Simulated scan of single mutants.
Amino acid sequence: MFNYSVATKIYLMELQKKQIERVQKIIEDEEIRMLRKEMIPRAQLMPYFDRPFFPQRQSNRPLTVPREPSFRNVNSRCWSCISDIELYHFEQVQAWKPIK
């Protein structure tokens, strides 16, 4: 009885293994078929060399014009907001920094 149950178990494992391999083969064949379908070369129209293509604008909005950069606010703090004492202190600290 033991030998029979072991043989049955081995037989079922082999069947399961064959079924898994069969499913994997079907999946691979389908992937190969899809890749071959995608790789078919498609003919493209020749460009008209006598009439070059000029793309049309889709939008009616006016073109963006670049502005000159503004260098008034150099620091994150507004220079006009800094008091005279703070400005004097800032200049003194900058002048007396030791050079390493």
Rank of each mutant, 00 (worst) to 15 (best):
Q92T: 15
I99H: 04
R51L: 08
Q24E: 13
Y88P: 00
P62M: 03
I10L: 13
C81R: 10
R61G: 01
K17N: 08
N3T: 14
V74Q: 09
P47G: 06
K97V: 15
Y4N: 13
C81Q: 07
E28M: 06
V6P: 00
R72C: 01
I82D: 07
K25N: 06
S80I: 08
I10R: 08
N60V: 04
Y88W: 11
M39N: 05
F71W: 04
Q24A: 12
C78I: 05
E91G: 01
C81I: 04
R33Q: 08
R51K: 10
K25G: 05
Q19N: 10
R51P: 00
V65H: 02
A7D: 13
I85K: 05
Q92M: 15
E86R: 12
I40D: 01
L15S: 05
R61N: 08
V65W: 02
E21P: 00
R36A: 06
V93R: 10
R57S: 04
N73S: 09
N3A: 14
K25H: 02
M13T: 06
R22S: 11
Q92A: 11
S83L: 04
R36K: 12
P55F: 03
I85M: 06
A43F: 05
L87T: 02
L63F: 09
V65Q: 09
I32A: 10
C81A: 13
S76T: 12
R33S: 11
H89S: 02
D84W: 00
R61V: 15
C78M: 07
E30Y: 06
H89E: 14
P66R: 09
N75M: 08
R42W: 02
L12Y: 15
N73G: 03
Q44L: 10
L35E: 07
V6T: 14
N60I: 07
D50F: 05
Q44N: 04
T8E: 15
P98A: 04
C78S: 13
H89C: 11
E30I: 12
A95Y: 14
L63S: 02
I99E: 12
I32R: 14
E91Q: 13
K100H: 03
D50R: 04
H89W: 09
Y4I: 15
I27A: 01
F49L: 15
M39Q: 03
D50P: 00
P66V: 09
E14M: 10
F53W: 08
S83M: 06
P66K: 08
P47F: 02
M13A: 13
R22M: 04
M13H: 06
K17L: 10
P69A: 07
C81L: 07
Y48V: 01
R36G: 10
T8C: 15
F54H: 03
M1K: 08
L45Q: 07
K97M: 15
D50M: 05
E14N: 10
